[in-house]
Amino acid sequence: MKKIALLATLITGAILLYSTKDFAPWGDPHSPASVHVSNVYIEKSVEQTHVPNIVTAILGDYRGYDTMFETVVIFSAGMAVIGVLRRPKE
């Protein structure tokens, strides 16, 4: 059983290591992650929201829907833990 697990891990790692060939090198300004939408955020967010911290502007405004359900996820986790563990005092 453990041998199968080790084999699966090694195969997954090998595939991932092979696929790093296509990734951008560390710190590349022209990597695919930093050419499309992020430049628009950096250029426009101060103008559109008057918030100097770009991360806060994206978190609270542009991706507000994401953050809202994030809060709902945390809230549900708290309620789930109370529901699973809480028991009345004897």
Partner: peptide
Amino acid sequence: WRSMGIFLVE
């Protein structure tokens, strides 16, 4: 107000 709204949300 967009800045203030972010503050409320935070």
